[in-house]
Structures are given as C-alpha cells and as structure tokens.
Simulated assay, not measured.
Amino acid sequence: MRCLRFICIEDDTRFAEILKTKDFKIPIILISNYDDYIFQTVHLQIFDFIIKSRLNEEIIETLDHLQDYLEYKSQSIFIEYNGSAYHISINDILYIETLSHHTIIHCK
C-alpha cells in the first residue's frame, strides 16, 4: 500500500495529472527546478511543491507536515448520508448507537 508519492517534473505536469485522474488517495509531493509549475499544479491539490535547489532545506518541513496530516487523517472517519459526505473526527464522537437498521453517531 502506498501512502506517498514524490514526482520530479522537468518539463510539464502530466504525471501529476495522470495520478489525480486515476483517483489515487495519496499525498503527492512535486519536486522541480521550475517554480512556475507551482501555479499550474494548484488545481491538482498537490500536498506540497518543492523547488529542487531548496530540497535539502524544505524536505524535513514537508515531511513533518505530511506526518501531521497522516496522523490527523487516520483519526477521523468519512460517512456518506443522503448523498452527502461527512468528515468526523474520532475525538468528537461521544458514542454510537444502533436502532433497528439505523446507526446514530452522537458527537460533541
């Protein structure tokens, strides 16, 4: 199971676009020498973009943010109800009960 993907782009953003169209649910960190690609990749919801010349300075901070993100994400659940999706933090759940064929989640 993959939980992270680094992509080094040199001439365009096709690799990231392909990844996003495949509906991967993983954070993507782009690395490039060309800072003008930052604006071209914003719509892709990239986790981070690192300029290659600053990789040594920025990679630790990016990985720290990634760790925080993954810890936060793992402490929540997604629920779909009546066609809408809800993100609920585990810490907000007081208790869960079932009644007949229904599940009720009581939150703070």
Rank of each mutant, 00 (worst) to 15 (best):
R2L: 15
C3E: 15
C3N: 09
C3H: 14
L4I: 13
L4K: 07
I7L: 10
I7M: 01
I7V: 14
C8H: 15
I9S: 01
E10I: 08
D11R: 11
T13W: 06
T13N: 13
T13A: 14
R14C: 08
A16Y: 02
A16V: 15
E17Q: 13
E17S: 15
I18T: 01
I18F: 04
L19H: 01
K20D: 05
T21A: 08
D23N: 13
I26K: 02
I26E: 14
P27R: 04
I28A: 00
I28M: 03
I28P: 05
I29R: 03
I29E: 11
I31D: 00
I31C: 03
S32D: 06
S32P: 09
S32L: 10
N33I: 00
D35M: 06
D35V: 05
Y37T: 03
I38D: 02
Q40H: 07
H43G: 13
L44N: 02
Q45P: 00
I46R: 00
D48T: 03
F49Y: 14
K52A: 06
K52T: 02
K52P: 03
S53D: 08
S53C: 01
R54K: 15
N56L: 11
N56F: 11
N56C: 07
E58A: 06
I60P: 00
L63A: 04
L66M: 06
Q67D: 14
L70T: 12
E71T: 12
Y72I: 06
S76G: 12
I77S: 05
E80F: 11
Y81I: 07
N82H: 09
N82F: 11
S84F: 12
S84D: 12
A85R: 13
Y86E: 06
Y86N: 09
H87I: 04
I88K: 02
S89G: 07
I90R: 11
I90E: 14
D92H: 08
D92V: 02
I93S: 01
L94H: 05
L94Q: 13
L94I: 13
L94E: 15
Y95P: 05
Y95L: 02
I96C: 05
E97V: 09
E97M: 06
T98S: 15
T98A: 13
T98C: 09
T98H: 14
S100N: 12
S100F: 06
H102T: 13
H102W: 09
T103C: 14
T103F: 08
I105M: 09
H106L: 03
